[in-house]
Amino acid sequence: MGNLNLGLFISGIVTIIAIYGILALSLNLKFGVAGLIDLGVVGYFAVGAYAFVLTTAPPPSELSHYSIGLGMPLWVGFIAAPVAAGLFSFLVGLPALRLSGEYLAIATYAAAEVLRAVFTNEDWLTNGVVGFNNLRQPFRGAFASGDVYQYFFMALSLAVLFILFLILSRLHWGPFGRALRAIRENEQVALSVGKNVTKLRIKAFVLGGAVSGFAAALYVSFATLIVPTMFVSEVTWTVWIALVIGGTGNYVGALVGTAVLVTAQELTRFFQASADLASVLAASRLIAMGLILIVIIRFRPRGILPERHYVDTKAVPVAESTAQAVSPKRVVE
């Protein structure tokens, strides 16, 4: 139990925070910004994960049940995962986004649950409950030591998270994010200013799905295995709670919420416990999640970092010829 173990423990937590953080960014785009109640977070994640595995797994041997394993390089998997997750989002979104509010919530939740049943039962595609294991990891060969590799993987996950964060933030403060927020705020008024609400929602939905595909590729690479039970609805709830804790509509908040929640959960692993106590500790993780949620909703209902508003600080040009200039004073900020 030296320092290195503690280091590895922390790097593991940070990696999980990064992966769940990507999912929280994705949900923030869909719910926090565009106002879409999506309870199918784990569905797009699962599609991305299986797309990654099926493109990169070795071709099946005579003993295996699955029939697709393209054995392609890992970078292909890192492209296939977001593409497949985005495509699946599109298929779900096309009919579901005609629905709104709670109907959308039910439709997306159902889609994710059906998908898990499919992945559990269609052996030819997913190898069923056995799944795949001993998956390859990106750049693993470049590292002699598994410990050092874990730090590298943490850095890789954080880098992917950071790039996606930059992309989504940039979109948020531009015309695209503005239009999405307008739709969230008032659909009728958005229609009255000529916004094709359904089309913009589908764009947000597909983009969000694609983002969660990156999380999926990292997740299965980190775990080096994939089984259908990794994609239960708890994943969806965890991401939702993280977003609500952190602050809906705020991408930094989404990440802070994820960090708080995952840390609180993983710390319970830190205690060495007897077998009896272990099950108690497992339950305590759920209790911790619930407690944090209650405290936040009671004392900071808009989250740790509430949504920020665009502030126009650029100089106001001096009136050229506006005959009816009525403002008595001008503040140039």
């Binding site: 503005r178 927020r181 307008a182 705020e185 008032n186 008024v189 958005a190 665009y310």
Partner: peptide
């Protein structure tokens, strides 16, 4: 109502 949680400028 407009877009209530957005600024006048937005």
């Amino acid at each position: 109502h407009g877009f209530p949680q957005m600024t006048i400028m937005e």
